[in-house]
Nucleic acid binder design. Structure first.
Lengths: 151, 151
DNA sequence: TGTCTAATGTCAAACGTTTGATACTGACGT
DNA sequence: ACGTCAGTATCAAACGTTTGACATTAGACA
């Protein structure tokens, strides 16, 4: 037989779980983006708003870790959202040059509107899969996170 | 009761399926990127190589659709990979200024090495979940794609 | 045959993010 | 009390991608 120390790349390499994961994520992200565009909001803006909403008073650097982006990217987003009056930067009580991030009333209003349309996508998925499989999907996805985190 | 025409954004909004999907995709993508960096290859390069490998002779615009990016992004990637001698652009037999994309032998070699480490991530997931749940996950993800595509 | 349309490829500019480097602040230890 | 260190914020530059626009080409239809 011929030398095959290097096994060839199979034609079914695109049918992997990780590719299905990527396709699904792209499709969901596109669906969110499409719905949010009508409200003049980007997905990254929505992600920032809902994260600050669920945990008010976060520092920019800490927020960057949660969003999986760099602190500079957060600063850029905050600057824009602050210009729209949806986010405000308060001075940290103990550390002076650290700034706590909070939502303004306008920010909460914008988030409510955005979350309504994003929740539609979530509901769309649950309707198609059923409640139990959807929950199972969520559990499997969390397991995937765990599996690839520690190596 | 108070006015609640606008329902508040629940604190459990981050526990949705779509967020678990995003977290898992980011984690998997990060794992791939980390392993591919050692080979001096970006995830986008790997994605292009394996797509061209599975379907040789694709045009740039068609390839862009499969990768969910713009034709310019593909042109940029192809230019770089062509500079490395991993991809070549042949003239389409019928259409003159359309260029078929093919892998060179060096490209196939690089793809083999890259695919080996990417397959490790896939195996890592299958080991953690088990074969049957992994396949079920893949099926559920495909259902998610279908669910959000048509609206 | 001539024109129209759809599709491809490429150029230039704008955008958002990352990378690298710097300044500042508060806590901790010897 | 003082120096060291970790964490935060900000600036400048580079990178990769998208957006918009344009030239080219082949097939379709009259």
């Amino acid at each position: 037989m011929t030398r095959n120390e290097e096994e060839p790349v199979g034609p079914d390499a695109l049918d992997r779980v990780t590719w299905a994961l990527r396709r699904a994520e792209l499709a969901v992200q596109a669906a969110k983006e499409q719905r949010l565009r009508a409200l003049g909001m980007a997905v990254s803006h929505y992600a920032l708003l809902i994260t600050v909403h669920s945990q008010p008073g976060l520092a920019g650097a800490e927020l960057a870790r949660r969003l999986n982006v760099t602190p500079q990217a957060v600063a850029s987003l905050v600057a824009r959202l602050e210009g729209r009056g949806q986010v405000e930067r308060r001075e940290h009580p103990r550390h002076r040059h650290i700034q706590e991030l909070h939502l303004t009333e306008a920010g909460r209003e914008a988030l409510r509107a955005a979350d309504a349309v994003v929740a539609e996508v979530e509901q769309q998925i649950k309707d198609a899969l059923g409640a139990a499989p959807a929950e199972q999907l969520r559990a499997l996805l969390d397991e995937v996170c765990e599996a690839v985190r520690e190596d």
